[in-house]
Design a protein around this nucleic acid. Structure first.
Lengths: 116, 116
DNA sequence: CCTAGGTACTCTGCATAACTAACTACCACT
DNA sequence: AGTGGTAGTTAGTTATGCAGAGTACCTAGG
């Protein structure tokens, strides 16, 4: 989706993945596939795996190794209490930002109506 | 506002500043002050100036030096045609991302209603 | 047997962008 | 001379996503 999206995903991708895990536990390959289904077609596998390791190190998720029928064992991640709090914080930050940006956008629309 | 906001601003701050300039031309110090007024209380001056230089190098804005009564000359930035296109693209990218994230959030709310 | 391909995860190096923190410069007032 | 508000610059750090290659496990076809 281009450079703009890449930069915008910094900081939001983490929340997106945590939100996916809040619905139900999942493993990396599955999360990547789900992101692709939801329209994030350019998100790279390596990015997701790195992110998962990061949030694991921060203690936001619990991990369980589960054997797979079709390949190497899966690392199934699930959101824990700490991750839940962090996700709440994320919603707060996101909400704040989204509100300001929406206001700016509407302000421009109104300006253009009157102005040009 | 903390680390989450810092990361989330990557990619969006640029759009925010371009949007401010779309309303009317402004200089760096003024933009910083306006951002602070709008609730981005922790945004650092250096960040804004660096961003302005970046978008100038990319040709998204025109610059004019205007003497100030109260200090060094101001660099007044105004959005040009190229910047306008880029801002349109930004709205598209932002809209896409905001839509997915909002859907995820509502999905979680519904899941929690039924589930726990 | 061994090659191709799907599943699943790891790793190194790179680019970008925001932050920290200091600095320069101009002006007014005391 | 010193303080403080205005206005912009710079060097170094950190965090995160991408590119691209590699490892490992399993199944099916030639």
């Amino acid at each position: 989706m281009g450079k703009q999206m890449t930069e915008m995903l910094k900081g939001t991708l983490e929340g997106i993945v945590l939100a996916i895990l809040a619905v139900q536990p999942a493993y990396g390959y599955e999360i990547t596939a789900r992101l692709r289904d939801q329209g994030f077609s350019d998100i790279v596998e390596g990015t997701v795996y790195a992110l998962l390791i990061r949030i694991e190190k921060r203690g936001l998720v619990d991990v369980e190794k589960v054997p797979s029928e079709k390949g190497p064992p899966r690392k199934v991640y699930s959101l824990n209490a700490s991750g839940g709090e962090y996700l709440e914080e994320f919603w707060g930050t996101w909400g704040f930002l989204a509100e300001r940006i929406d206001k700016l956008q509407h302000h421009i629309e109104n300006t253009q109506e009157k102005g040009e």
